[in-house]
C-alpha cells in the first residue's frame, strides 16, 4: 500500500496530455490532480465554465467532451488525452447553439446567469440527443443542472422553443 505522501506526490506530478479545446489542439503538461474545470478556467481563461459545487452535483461546469455532457469538475485534465472539449465559449453564436442562446434570452431563462453556461451546454446536448421532445422529458434530463434563481419553467420554454416545438 502506498503512503499518503507517495500518493500526494503522484497527484502533484506533471502529466503530458494532448487534446482539443473548442477546436484548438493543446499539448500540455499538467499536475495530475488538476480538474478540467480548474484548468479551463485558470489556464485558458475560459471562465464561462462555472464552478458551483466542485462535487459534480450542480452542473454549472457542464461542457461537452466528444459531444457528450460532462461535469468538468469531476474530470481530470489527465483523462482528456485524445478528446475534444467544447465549452460555452466554443459554441457562441454558432448554428443550433446560437438558437439555444437566443431562446434563453427571449424566454428569460436565467436571472443571475451563473448556471446559464452549464444549462446551455446541457440544452445543446439534449436537443442533439433527441431528448427534448416533451416538457416532461426536458424537465427530467435537465435536472442535473441546478438553478437557484428558479428559472426552471422558463428554461423548459427556451429549450422547447429552440428545439422547434410549441411553447405552451
Amino acid at each position: 500500500m502506498k503512503t499518503r505522501e507517495e500518493a500526494l506526490s503522484r497527484l502533484g506530478a506533471s502529466v503530458g496530455v494532448e487534446f482539443g479545446v473548442n477546436g484548438v489542439r493543446r499539448r500540455v503538461g499538467v499536475e495530475g490532480r488538476v480538474t478540467l474545470l480548474d484548468w479551463l478556467r485558470d489556464e485558458l481563461g475560459l471562465t464561462g465554465v462555472k464552478k458551483g459545487c466542485d462535487q459534480g452535483a450542480c452542473g454549472a461546469c457542464t461542457v461537452l467532451v466528444d459531444g457528450k455532457r460532462v461535469v468538468a469538475c469531476l474530470m481530470l485534465v489527465a483523462q482528456c488525452d485524445g478528446r475534444e472539449v467544447t465549452t460555452v465559449e466554443g459554441v457562441a453564436g454558432v448554428g443550433e447553439a446560437g438558437a439555444v442562446q437566443d431562446a434563453f434570452v427571449r424566454h428569460d431563462a436565467f436571472q443571475c446567469g451563473y448556471c446559464t453556461p452549464g444549462q446551455i451546454m446541457s440544452a445543446i446536448a439534449l436537443i442533439g440527443e433527441g431528448r427534448a421532445g416533451t416538457r416532461e422529458e426536458i424537465a427530467e434530463f435537465m435536472s442535473g443542472n441546478l438553478c437557484r434563481c428558479g428559472a426552471y419553467p422558463r428554461i423548459r420554454d427556451a429549450i422547447v422553443d429552440a428545439a422547434g416545438g410549441e411553447v405552451g
Binding site: T47, G48, K50, R106, F110
Partner: peptide, 21 residues
Amino acid sequence: LDRVEAPLKVTGAALYPNDVS
C-alpha cells in the same frame, strides 16, 4: 424587454468576481 446583459450571460462572457484574474 429582454435583459440588457443577456448576451454576456449566455455566452459565458459576464465576469463574476471569481472569474477575475
